[in-house]
Every structure is written in C-alpha cells, then in structure tokens.
C-alpha cells in the first residue's frame, strides 16, 4: 500500500536569488488576485493594470506623485525595520507619524516661528523625531513594566493619535480663516520644504539608519534581543535598555516621516492627514526582508500603490479603499515567501 503524505521540512540555506524569485512570484500572485477582485467590483482587470502603471510610473506627472509618497513610506519602512530586527512588534507607525507631524507643527508654527532656514529644518526633524519617539517609547515602557504586548499598545496609541489629530484640527489649533473644512494653522514659511529637500533629508536619515543598524554594535544589540532575553543578557546586552532605545528610534523615524510630509506638502494638518503610510511602511519592511538597503525599492512599490489610488477612483470609479485590500494581499503574499524560504513541502511515499 502506498500513501502519499505531505510533510513540511526545514530548508537548508537558500540563495539570495531564490528569495528574490519567490518575492517577484508572490507579488505577481498578489496582483493576479487583485485582478480577480476587480472583476467582482465590475472593472476590467486589464484596465486596472494599465491605469495602475500609467498613474504611478509611466507618466511624468504620475512618477512625481509616486516619488512624493516615497518619502513618508520609506521612513515608516525604516521605522518598522528597526523594531522588527529586535523582534519588537511596533505596528503603530501611523500614530507616531501623526504625532511627529503635530510636534513639528507645534515647533514650526507656535514655538519657534522666527527661526531662519538651516536651523528651522533641524528643529523640524528633531521635533518630529521627539514626538514620534516618545509616542512609541510609552509602549516600550509598558512592555517592560507591565509586560503588555507592544503590538497591542502601539495600535491603541494610533487611535489616541488619530483622535488628537481630529481635536487639534477642529478645536485647539484650528485656523478660523478656513471656513468649512477643519484645518490647522500652517508652519512658518521658512519651515516649508520642497520635494527635493524632503527627499534629501530622507536619504540622509536612510544613510544614518543604515550606518547605525548595519555598521555599529547597535544593530547587533537588536539582533541579540530578537534571539531571546537569556542570550542577550549573557552577551552583556541589557534587554530593557535595548527595548527602550529601539522603540524610541523606531518611533522617531515614523515621527520624522510625519514632520517631513507635513513640511513638504500643505504645511497644515487636516483630519485626512493620516492615510496609512505607516501601514504601507510595515508592508515595505517585510517586502525588503528587513534589509535597510533594499528599503527604498520596496517603499517605491508601495508608493506606486498610493499614487494609483486616486486615478483608480477617478477613472474606474473604484473606491480608494481597494488599495488597502491589495496591500493586505501583498503582505500575505510576502509572508508566504518567508515560509517557503525557511521550509519546503515534500511528498513522502509510504
């Protein structure tokens, strides 16, 4: 009697090319399923693909929009990488992004409105980093003191941030000059950044993060923490200290993302300021396999998703929310790649 059974077996080392191939295949799979969803929404999938490409990279105008989304997503992606390398599950980048923008606005509009340009940009970045960092640090503290899963607290803190955003837009910092739509006062003009300026700062942050994570012992401390408390302790790493600084660092990156996006777009906050770059960053982080140097590429793909959203809505009358669903699909697909690079499925004949 021969029966065939399925067994999951751990794989020996895989090559980088194999990983890349699987990633590409999984993305194709995700987009195929997205096409099927389009059929259910009554849209020709081919039209969806063509609009997706045209509105994100094939037209100059589309490419510009994509690049403008790249900055916030890239920084949130770095934020996710920093915390996931340490096996800390900060998923509240969106909240830290909002708070970072709010503290940047507080600094640039109310506290130091008269600071001249080079200094103003430093204040902008530092204020954003401090806001987002502290927001995440709270969750790190709760993890140490009360052992609460940081994934849960960072998520809840996102909701707190969202409510605060609504509050400052509608009440606290509301600019009475705008009638109708709730908007805050603007950053002082010397705080405003061109797109190129924000991209330059983002690249600088990317390089600094890469240096710290891949070239100094800070990165090694993150890795050791992810291997477990006992090993970390044995090698002289203090788990609570690493938890605190990596949560702060992670939150600070998301905070800078909010500050830069604020300064390179309208300069004021509105309830629609939160559009999910934080969550896109998380997906990008998994897409680039938590490698800082591949983060720009992965973030670019996610930025393409965002820039095509409005075009899809305008041309095909599909709700922009479908972008969230497709992002969810991409994340599932990329996670599946992680399974297949670690395990293989073998058929055993008995």
């Amino acid at each position: 009697m021969t029966r065939i059974r399925i067994r999951i077996v751990r794989r020996e080392r895989t090559t980088r090319g194999f990983h890349l191939l699987l990633t590409v295949l999984s993305l194709i799979g995700a987009f195929l399923i997205a096409g099927v969803l389009m059929i259910f929404l009554g849209v020709n999938p081919l039209a969806f693909y063509s609009i997706f490409l045209q509105s994100s990279i094939l037209t100059t105008w589309g490419l510009q929009i994509t690049l403008s989304y790249l900055v916030p997503i890239l920084l949130c992606c770095l934020s996710a990488i920093v915390s996931y390398r340490a096996a800390l599950w900060n998923i509240g980048q969106e909240g830290q992004y909002i708070i970072g923008a709010m503290t940047a606005l507080a600094a640039g509009a109310f506290l130091f409105p008269n600071v001249p340009p080079p200094l103003s940009y430093i204040i902008l970045v530092l204020a954003g980093a401090a806001g987002g960092g502290v927001w995440a640090l709270i969750c790190g503290l709760l993890r140490i003191v009360s052992e609460i899963n940081e994934a849960v607290t960072t998520l809840l803190m996102y909701y707190v941030a969202l409510q605060l955003l609504n509050y400052v837009c509608r009440v606290a910092w509301r600019n009475p000059a705008f009638v109708g739509h709730p908007e805050t006062y603007s950053l002082a003009p010397q705080y405003m950044l061109s797109f190129g300026g924000s991209l330059a700062i983002a690249i600088a942050v990317l390089v600094i993060t890469w240096f710290l994570i891949d070239r100094t012992k800070l990165g090694l401390e993150l890795d050791l923490l992810s291997e477990g408390f006992r090993v970390a302790q044995y090698s002289g790493v203090k788990p609570s200290r690493v938890i605190l600084w990596s949560m702060f660092f992670s939150g600070a990156l998301a905070g800078i993302s909010g500050a830069l996006y604020l300064a390179s777009t309208s300069g004021f906050l509105q309830p629609e300021f939160s559009v999910g770059y934080g969550f896109a960053g998380i997906i990008a982080a998994w897409l680039c396999d938590l490698k800082v140097l591949y983060a720009p590429l992965a973030s670019f793909l996610l930025a393409m998703m965002y820039s095509s959203g409005h075009a899809l809505q305008a041309c095909l009358h599909v709700s922009i929310d479908i972008i969230d669903a497709i992002e969810g699909l991409i994340l599932m697909a990329v996670l599946t790649v992680h399974f297949f690079t670690r395990y293989k499925i073998v058929l055993v004949r008995q």
């Binding site: 090694l220 890795d223 050791l224 992810s226 291997e227 477990g228 006992r230 090993v231 044995y234 090698s235």
Partner: peptide, 12 residues
C-alpha cells in the same frame, strides 16, 4: 539556547 544566538552569523 544560551551558548550562541542561533539566528546570527558566526562572526557576530
């Protein structure tokens, strides 16, 4: 469990 961090390279 303690002697090495299994996920990290020998170097580290």
């Amino acid at each position: 469990g303690l002697g090495v961090a299994p996920g990290l390279a020998v170097k580290w």
